[in-house]
Amino acid sequence: MCDKNKALKLAIIGCGAISANAHIPNACKSPLFDVVYLVDKNLELANSQASYFDIPNAVDDFQEIIGKVDAAIVAVPHKLHYDLTIPLLKSGIHVLVEKPMAISFNECQEMIEVAKENKVLLEVGHFRRIQPVFQLAKKIISEQWLGKIESFTAEEGVVFSSPVASAAMFKKEQSGGGVLLDTGPHLLENLLWWFGDYGNLQYWDDACEGVEADCKLELTFDGGVTGSVNFSRLRNLKNQVNVKCEKGSIEIPIGWSEDIILKYDNADYETKVSATNEYTGQGNLGYLYNELEFFASTVLSSDAYFMKAEEAAKTVRLIEQCYANRQNLDLEW
């Protein structure tokens, strides 16, 4: 049940899995939001979610919310991020758009410009930026706890079985891409944050005119750090970043632990460093709640950015270049 006396009047656009499982319950729980609209092209879905969470309005056209809300969460198929975000920003509505910010760098740049022109906030759902374990990783890497950074390997993947409300994410015309565009933005954004901008890249994936389920990148960052990244929807990978440094290596877990392991060359011991906050232990749901709080705080006080949209746009540029330089990952299966 939503408390109707909250600060920001919010619309949530897109009632798929991420909204149903995180954004809607989180926004309803937060004292900073009054969720007044749910929007989905599938009006039946919007109505059922609105009824379940006791939200007063459910509509199938996002234009209906214009002039009636302060802010919106855009959680629709990737290809529609730009199409929906631009008119919302132009109408003076603050937007938190799910990652990836859009499917092309040009779209991202236009979104940023429109947000500036209309003096509204545009944030992107890169919630790992506020996760303590990734912030700690940034500190360890920046401060070179184990000496100069040399290289890294990173992989993120599970056999995909999450409930999805529609097939949109598997249709190229709606999703714009596969695992690179869907799973990739979080980790790639982390790598750009930790290592700086990239120079060269090579990219392989297994798509055969559809969307990729498995892919591989090789990257060289401007500071000389090189590494490889794997993403998959077909296999359970380590879900870890391993950073090779001058004096040892750093193991950064992705999603399954808050502990970073520091391994020293020529030593028979290792160090575990942990990073937690009040949301730790609640899984992604807690950090997504934290993300909403940041979004609301930024709208209300404009000094609580967790990440600027310009940085999210860099991730989209990297992904766009991957697709432009695609090579075939020839898997027998």
Binding site: S162, F170, G178, D206, G210, V211, E212
Partner: peptide, 19 residues
């Protein structure tokens, strides 16, 4: 397709999907 979550492998190809 009854369960969309199982589409990862198939969606590598331009299949028409009927729910």
């Amino acid at each position: 397709v009854r369960d969309f979550s199982k589409l990862s492998s198939l969606s590598r190809y331009p299949v028409n999907i009927i729910a």
